[in-house]
Every structure is written in structure tokens, then in C-alpha cells.
Design a protein around this nucleic acid. Structure first.
Lengths: 259, 259
DNA sequence: AATGCGTATTGCAGGTAATGCAATGAATCG
DNA sequence: CGATTCATTGCATTACCTGCAATACGCATT
């Protein structure tokens, strides 16, 4: 809509790949160097990009700070966190919290496994939307037309032999998940990783977030992981109840600031 | 430099405070609603802002993803991480890694304490630059004129009775830190929290990052924490050596992706 | 030092594209 | 059903963005 802003914002993903100098930015943006310079200057003034000693540009600190503030303002996260910690304490496995936004599903909180074999994931990172258990729950909750249109607009990478690889299979899976009220991913993303997930509902019944417990085969088998399902569902329901104001918020642990 | 981009970017910190509707954005930006709308649309197309069901705008998912990628491209972080984990395993305390950028010092990595009493901090968040041990190290490394000008441009909030509250005291502290090659914060930010920190040097000898171990008084006294200093310094030097290519990188632990 | 090369930066004139206005939709509420 | 509020659109005006070309800067080479 706004050409100038559009160009400026297009610089960001470009810099996310790694540092670049003025000429590279100008070329990849398809504009004159002087134009790129002015855009970069403006981004720089706002701290969105940073200039390295070698004059190349990188994404800057304020971007972190913004993302930070944004994630802290998500009230589901705030409420859910102690529950995630507790679930982690009870099971020992990695616990994730995810939300749906703009055709992406992304982790907004995580508590690490106590086992030495960890899985790679990061808060803020989009999940494998076609296979992740949390993604299934969040998409399954969409109204039919939107669910269909989203499903048909996705790519279906074949991460493993057990990945879902087309929209009709995905929609069928979503229907099943919608029906049963929980979801799994059994080796659909990484051959050796299984997850069970349950939905967090808002006061209007819509699914506002989903949480999952993930563990590699080498620690527990899929069957064993499934025995945790009732616990996961209870936890998700506790979060839902609190989020909807049906339960008083829990006492939060003491916190202070370091240097 | 570019008015349009400038205005668009000014929306971000505004939305970071919390969701806002079109009129609020337009008012706080000092522009007509239609102008604000077009800016928000452009931000929206790029996923930088998100539109809630109630039509209000929030910071969006792509912002996280960008911040994510940015932090992952910091190679110091990559190298340092296993060392931080190890230091945490050895001490049990919270370990931070921080860098200096554009008059701010911010955490880029963190390993949580094993003790129940945790401290509040988040990756991406600027630190209390006038008192934090890591900030002292990073600023102490600047060349004299810049160090002075930065120090004089700072605010000196009195977090506690032990906070540094003026630029000359700060410069004196920096001189001391520069001399001794390590830094502390003994209750300067939070009365009951102490930290010891050591610098990570690049191949050219410049201080590229700083790491710290932080613990509350209730867990260990300041004196006890200081006994960890040699360990902290050794760890920082190990990171420096590896970062400068003087040591082969360590084997990273097995990692896989969850759902 | 002086020269040359590759960048980054600046001033300027032309014209596009951003702006504000006013009118229209859409949605909520009494 | 009318009134109110807020988002959205079309349009005329001109501010601001753009690309060009000239200049300055940093760095290496001799």
C-alpha cells in the first residue's frame, strides 16, 4: 500500500539472512543506492537496524526489545507459564505453548526437558504447521471455510515418512482432532520425536492457544507418552479456566532482576 | 530521513505497549486516520503487525521470527552457548551473555538458575547499563573519548543505595574494571542480587561480549559468589579462544525438532 | 605522499506517490 | 430504526521520495 514503507520493510528479511552492505541492499531491493541509504538511515534511527564497524548493516537491538515486549503482552502466556513449569516438573519433558496468527503457528513459550537429549525449537519460531500437534489443534478450531482455505494454501513438506503431505489428508486429520479434542504428532516432523497436545480455550470457547509435551523415542515410547494425555488435558483445562476468569490466578514465584 | 517510514516505525513502540485501534494510532502519530490506516496496512502485509478479531492492531509474528533469526546469526552466541550451559551446570546459578549495541547493552543468551529463586530477565532486553557487571565490561572496553561521551549521555537511576548515580563515578568504575579485567555488581540493581562477570574477546582483542553469573543473597553471599570468579574468567577465555579460532569448536549435543 | 579504486554520501530537479479531506460503509447501541 | 462510532475509499493537492550525477571518504598500492 505504501511503497516507501513497503521497501523499507523488505530490507528486514534480507538483513535477517546476514549482514549486508549498502550496494547489496540496493540491488536486492531494486532501487538506487541513495534510496536504499535513506531507508536504511531511517531504520537505523529507530534502532531497527544496526551498523557494524565494517559499515555493513545488521538487524538491531530494538527489534529484540520490541519482540520481547510483544510476547510479554500476550496474557495467555503470562497465565500459562506456571502451569507449563509444573507440567514439566511432573513429566520431565519439553513443554511448548503455541498460538495461531496469520497463517502461521508459533511457539510463544517453552520449558526445556530435564533429559539430556533436547529438541531444537525457539520461542517466536514458526512451527511445522502441517504436522505439529499444536498446529492441528489451532487450525482444527477455525470455522470450516477458513480451515479449508488455509489447508489448501499450505505447503506439505515430507519431513518424514509419517508426515502429512496433502491438504485432504490434513483436513481429515483436523476433523479427527476437532472431534477428539486433542492431537498428536507421532514422528511426523522428526522421525524420533513424539508429541501430545491439548487446546487452551478462551471464555468464548475459541481455541486461543495449544500446549504440547514432546519427547524423543529414546526417552519414552509413543505409547508411554500417550499415557500423559489426561495430565496434559487437565493442565490445558486449568489454563483455560484461569484465562477465562473462572479460577483465581495462582501465586507467582518470587522474582527479581539480575545484572 | 524518510518521513513515511519514520512514521510507520513510530507505530511499533506504540503497539508494543499494547493493542491499539486505528484512531489511537492516528492520534498518537499526529496524522490523519487514513494515513495511519495505510501505514498499518503495509505493516500488516509484512506480518509486522497483526490484526486482532476486535480489529485492533498488535505487534505480529514476523517480528518474533526476525528477532529470532537476528539473534541466531550472532556467532558469539552460537559458540558461547555450550560454555554457558556448562558453567550453569557447575555453579547452578543463572548465566547471562550480553553484547553492546547502539548505546545499549542487551542479553543475547541466558541459562536459568537451578535454584527455585529465579531472577527476572529476558533475552533481548536491555540491561541496567549503569550498574550491570556485563555493561561495565563492555563499556570499559570502548576507546576513551567514546566511553566518556557514552557515560555522559546516560541516565543514572538510583535502583538501590549501592547504584552508581553519576557519570564520574561510573567512569571511575569503568577504569577499575578495565584495569582488572573483570567486573561485579553487588546489589547495584537489585538489593539482594550479586553478579560477577568476565569479558569475551575477539581476535583483535576487542571485547565482543561479556558473560556473568548472578545469584541472590539468599542462595550465596557476595563473598561466596566471588570465589567463582576464576571459573567465570576461565570460561570467558575459553569462549574467546574458540571465537578467535584458537581452539577447535566443541562437539554440540544432539538436537532434533519437536511439534 | 600520491594515486587510484570501491564505497558511501550529498544536492538537486522532476514527478510520483503520500497526504488530508470529505463522503461512504459497516457495526454497535439505545 | 435512527444515532453514534469507527473503519474505509476516492480524489485533488503538493509534499516528499526518487534517481542522477557529483563529491567525499576509506583503503590499499606504489
Amino acid at each position: 500500500m505504501s511503497q516507501t514503507v513497503d521497501r523499507a520493510l523488505s530490507i528486514l528479511p534480507l538483513l535477517a539472512e546476514g549482514p549486508a552492505n549498502l550496494e547489496q541492499v540496493a540491488t536486492r531491493l531494486g532501487v538506487h543506492k541513495s534510496t536504499a541509504l535513506r531507508l536504511l538511515r531511517t531504520l537505523h534511527e529507530h534502532g531497527i537496524v544496526h551498523r557494524q564497524p565494517d559499515q555493513r548493516y545488521r538487524l538491531g537491538a530494538r527489534l529484540f526489545a520490541l519482540a520481547q515486549q510483544a510476547v510479554e503482552n500476550l496474557d495467555v502466556r503470562e497465565i500459562a507459564h506456571p502451569h507449563l513449569v509444573e507440567l514439566n516438573a511432573q513429566t520431565g519433558h519439553t513443554v511448548h505453548l503455541a498460538v495461531h496468527e496469520e497463517d502461521e503457528v508459533l511457539y510463544i513459550d517453552k520449558v526445556e526437558s530435564r533429559y539430556p537429549v533436547r529438541m531444537y525449537s525457539r520461542i517466536g519460531k514458526p512451527v511445522a504447521i502441517t504436522v505439529a500437534a499444536v498446529a492441528k489443534l489451532l487450525l482444527a478450531d477455525l470455522p470450516e471455510p477458513e480451515r479449508r482455505s488455509v489447508a489448501e494454501g499450505l505447503d506439505y513438506p515430507r519431513y518424514t515418512a509419517r508426515s502429512i503431505t496433502n491438504s485432504s489428508a490434513f483436513l481429515a486429520e483436523l476433523a479427527k482432532v476437532r472431534e477428539q479434542g486433542w492431537a498428536t504428532d507421532l514422528g511426523g516432523h522428526e522421525e524420533s520425536i513424539n508429541c501430545v497436545a491439548a487446546p487452551v480455550h478462551g471464555p468464548d470457547g475459541r481455541c486461543v492457544a495449544a500446549m504440547s509435551v514432546s519427547a524423543p523415542n529414546v526417552v519414552v515410547s509413543a505409547d508411554e507418552l500417550l499415557t500423559l494425555l489426561p495430565l496434559v488435558r487437565r493442565t490445558a483445562e486449568a489454563i483455560s479456566a484461569e484465562y477465562s476468569g473462572k479460577t483465581p490466578p495462582r501465586q507467582s514465584p518470587s522474582e527479581a532482576s539480575p545484572s
